[in-house]
């Protein structure tokens, strides 16, 4: 289990110290054990429900609506430069 969870932690873009990974493994195992009880039910012929209320596509006009303060969207970023979000260098020089 721990190995599988290591992979999940990476997929979820988390970086946990050893102690924390142990805690997480124990708790996840405990929860999964409880979830196992769903196996008692035969659901072969049952359709899945993704939303309790059936909704059809909610189409709306593909029209441009002005946003009151587009500058603010960039300004609230932890680091920004003019109208760009700033991140560490992504491409290495060859």
């Amino acid at each position: 289990m721990r190995e599988v969870l290591e992979k999940m932690i990476h997929l979820a873009r988390l970086r946990l110290p050893d102690e924390e990974r142990n805690r997480l493994t124990k708790k996840t195992e405990h929860i999964l054990e409880y979830i196992e009880r769903l196996k008692e039910l035969n659901t072969d012929t049952i359709e899945p429900t993704s939303h309790a209320i059936e909704v059809v596509n909610a189409f709306r006009e593909d029209a441009v609506k002005p946003f009151s303060n587009p500058k603010k969207l960039v300004e609230i970023a932890p680091k920004s430069f003019e109208n760009l979000f700033e991140v560490p260098k992504v491409i290495n020089e060859g």
Binding site: I9, A12, R13, L14, R15, E20
Partner: peptide, 23 residues
């Protein structure tokens, strides 16, 4: 940047549910 921001930003219960959900 992603990993450290998320790891320091989320508390233990949220982290647990993200990992469980990913699994």
């Amino acid at each position: 940047l992603y990993e450290k921001s998320r790891t320091h930003g989320f508390g233990p219960e949220v982290t647990l549910r993200i990992v469980l959900g990913t699994y």
